[in-house]
Computed example of a mutant assay.
Amino acid sequence: MDTDWARQELAHFLELTALYRPDDPPGVVTISSRLSNRGPSDDIVESAQVVEQILDRVLPRWRTEVSDDRNKRVNRWCQHREAVQRADVALRREAEIRERLGDNAPLISAATMHPWVWEGARALWQSGHFREAVTAAARKVNAEAQNKLARRDLSETKLFQIAFSQTPAKPGESRLRVGEDDGGDTFRSVNRGAMAFAEGCFAGIRNPNSHEDGLPELPEHEALEQLAAFSILARWVDRATVETA
């Protein structure tokens, strides 16, 4: 993320949505808790379109974690303003916080994962439904693999077993090939590994998440690890060439 650009956009939004109480018309006394914004409404809406995407990256659950109780009583942009203030602090002091509170280890963001995964998971993730978000991401990867192979009759484990099979393609049974087929051991190893990895993702992650009732919600960090696994698989599928008979 371009931090300087993001902070400029956040600051611009705060300027536009600065709150003030308009003067009462002559001879009129208004009793209301509502405040107005300094900037034109059209400019605020345009800025909000960009700011919301920044907030989704920096504070993925801002819509549920930042209270909007005052929103209805004071101003429609109050929730956005508080979220923007928090996001600006997070961006400005990110390095310091990581250094002071942890070992400054590298971080992984769901928003930087393969688009199939994050697009599938985003809505559920932002509402805190992490287990369901992983399941949605798995369905998205499965659907994209079906589209690439033109196979709607197979799904999940069986689909990827056929897709990465070491046997040559047959009529109506295409293959996915990761990397250039030079006939070498590395090519065969990579594709054999892709098949085993896909089977593990669906058998070990997707199926338990979907088929076992009463499971507790996944901790966010564990769900992030599971998303990362499907992101790896998504990149292999996306980059693979289709071998046909």
Rank of each mutant, 00 (worst) to 15 (best):
N104W: 06
H129P: 00
V28Q: 11
V45D: 12
D42F: 04
V84D: 01
C201F: 11
W116I: 08
A110T: 07
Q146G: 06
V242R: 10
V134L: 08
W5K: 04
L124K: 08
L55P: 03
E9Y: 03
R177P: 01
V28P: 05
K140M: 14
M113F: 14
V178E: 04
R70A: 13
K158V: 07
D68W: 15
T157N: 10
N142W: 02
L10K: 05
R92P: 01
E220F: 04
S33P: 12
E180W: 09
V45S: 06
S33N: 15
E9R: 14
Q166H: 11
G214H: 11
N37Q: 14
R152Q: 12
R131C: 00
Q79S: 12
F130T: 04
E173V: 15
S36K: 12
H80I: 01
R34E: 15
K72V: 12
Q8R: 11
A136W: 02
S67Y: 01
V84L: 07
S36L: 10
T241V: 08
R100C: 09
V28I: 13
S155C: 10
V89W: 04
D213Q: 07
A138N: 07
E15Q: 14
F202P: 01
D4S: 15
V74W: 02
A18R: 14
A11W: 00
G102R: 05
M195A: 13
T186H: 06
R70E: 11
L227C: 00
Q85M: 10
S165H: 08
R34I: 03
T157G: 01
I205H: 09
L107F: 01
W62Q: 02
A234R: 05
A121W: 00
G214P: 11
R131Q: 04
R152E: 08
G204C: 08
R93A: 04
D213P: 13
V51G: 00
Q161E: 12
E156V: 00
D88T: 00
G184P: 05
K72C: 07
P22K: 07
L124C: 04
A203R: 09
W116P: 09
R76H: 08
A48V: 01
R151Q: 11
